[in-house]
Amino acid sequence: MKVQVWGCRGSLPSPSPEKDIFGGNTSCVQVTHKDICIILDGGSGIQRLGEHLGNEIKEVHILLTHLHIDHTMGLGFFLPLYNPSIKVHIWGPATSDETLLKRLRRYFSPPLFPVRLNELPTHPIIHEIDESEFMIGDVKICSSYICHPGPTLGFRLTCGNSVFAYMPDHEIPLASPDFPNNPEWTSGYNLAKDADLLFHDAQYRPEDYKSRIGWGHSSIVDTIAFAKMCGVKKLSLFHHDPGHTDKQLVEMLDEFTNEKHFDFDIEMCAEENIYDLS
C-alpha cells in the first residue's frame, strides 16, 4: 500500500514561497495498491493528482471525510470526472436526512460551480457510509464518525499487515473524557489503534487551541498524546494552519518534540511525501 500526499494544508489553499516545503494545497491523499486507486478527500490537491493519474487507472474511489469546502473544492477540477473511460466512485458520510448526492449537488451547481453533476460525461457512483466496513480490492476500509462539526468520518485502511489511519479534521479533547487516559472513550481510537501510519489534525499550538475550542481541530500536543495512546508507529501531523509558514511549522515541531522521547516517529506532513507501507 503506497500513500502519497497531494495536499495537507487545512481550511484554505495557501500557496506561497513561504510554504514551499509543506505545500499549500488542501487535503488530498492518494492510496494505491496494485491497480486500486483510493483518494482520501477532494481538497485542492486533487486537481494536480488528476493530472498525474496514470493511464492504466480505470477506476477511482474518492473517500470524503466530510463536506467542508477545503475537502471538496478540488472535485470539480478532477480530470477523471470528465473522462468517460474512468469510473469514479464517491464515498462520503451519511446524515439523518439529506442524501450525500443532494449535498454534493450543492457544490456542483451555480453559483459555486458551473457544471452540474448530471452534466458530467459519466455520473459518479455515490456511496453513503457511516460506521462502515468495506473492501476496495485488497484494501479493507473502516469508517467511523469522529469529533468535528457536521457529519465527519475518519478512515482506517488495512492492506495485508499494514494499517494507515486518516483523520485530517478531528478535535480530540472535546470528545474524550479524561483524555488521554481512557482510550475506549476517546473519539477515533478504534481507527488509529496500532496504525503503522497516522495522518492527524494538528492545526494549533496549545495556546491557540484555547480560543478555538469547538472549531473542530486539535493542538499538536493533544495529537501527539493521542498517537501515543493509540500506539501508532508513525505520526504525520496534518491540516496545517493556512497562516503557518514552513519556518513556523518547523519551529512548532521542534518546540514540542525536541529533547522529548517518543517511541514512534513524528513529522510534519508535506505535499509530495510518499510512504510505502508493506
Binding site: 460506521e131 470528545a175 473524557p177 482510550p183 475506549e184 472513550w185
Partner: peptide, 9 residues
C-alpha cells in the same frame, strides 16, 4: 478494547 461510538462519547 473497542472504542465507544462518537455519540456516546
Amino acid at each position: 478494547m473497542s472504542g465507544q461510538p462518537l455519540e456516546l462519547i
